[in-house]
Design a protein around this nucleic acid. Structure first.
Lengths: 126, 126
DNA sequence: TAAGTTAGTTTCTAATATATACTATCAATT
DNA sequence: AATTGATAGTATATATTAGAAACTAACTTA
């Protein structure tokens, strides 16, 4: 019973590969912050905007639409007043979230070392 | 013997946090492709340019400089003719590489599902 | 002498991101 | 009854960034 009949068909290092285009959409700071935020629970539009500090409404709107189109999140509107729109990870989105889960805390945990490296670099390249 | 005396000092979701700025530099498609490429061995400038299809010399130069300054890679020039410049992951860079190692193959492995999601999305939002 | 290699930098233009203002609906406040 | 405030966006105008192409400089090979 063969499961992986096809050889490696996609390669993110190839300019015209669909997986590369997909990778390019994912490998974006706003996208990663949004996906990371939705880890445990659903969030509303303005909630995301408040949590992901610095993101503009326009870009948030674009990224959410993109993520929904790619099947990583779902968008659900409730007919409340005012309207409530909820964004939630799909199974695919949750799977992706797991691959980037530790990226954020890695950055937080290693920033001191980075600061030191910058200091050192700047003292040499004055 | 305490090791983690300080509480959580950095947060990538905070607009003005140094860790956020660092995260923003890392969460970039070119940066991730470069770091992934250097996984096993050192590469020269033009080698990277050829492997990371589509990157321009200007941006590659900028990203490498940034990664060197942040202490994720080292730059070594050899006085050959023409000059050879070798880029290699530092321990810190290798540590980061491990956190993003599976991101690329995740994209390659799930692109079919994404294509299907897009098809479905486009048929609904016509 | 001209072309080719290395590793970049410079300049100009095209694409993208951000800030700001605007839409629409209704609730609560003054 | 008019203003303020919340929801979730869209539209526009400007600022920043990315990409394409040409250029630098030193040396080798044809």
């Amino acid at each position: 019973m063969k499961q992986n009949a096809s050889p490696v068909a996609y390669n993110i290092y190839s300019k015209d590969c669909p997986a590369r285009a997909f990778f390019d959409r994912l490998a974006d700071h706003w996208t990663l912050l949004i996906i990371g935020l939705l880890k445990k629970e659903a969030f509303r539009f303005n909630q995301i905007k408040r949590e992901v500090e610095g993101i503009s409404q326009k870009v948030l709107s674009q990224k959410l639409k993109q993520l929904e189109r790619d099947g990583l999140i779902t968008r659900t509107a409730f007919p409340t007043v005012p309207v409530t729109v909820e964004y939630r990870l799909t199974d695919l989105g949750h799977s992706f979230m797991q691959t980037i889960e530790h990226l954020g805390c890695w950055a937080e945990q290693n920033i001191e070392q980075v600061k030191q490296a910058q200091k050192n670099y700047d003292s040499i390249n004055a």
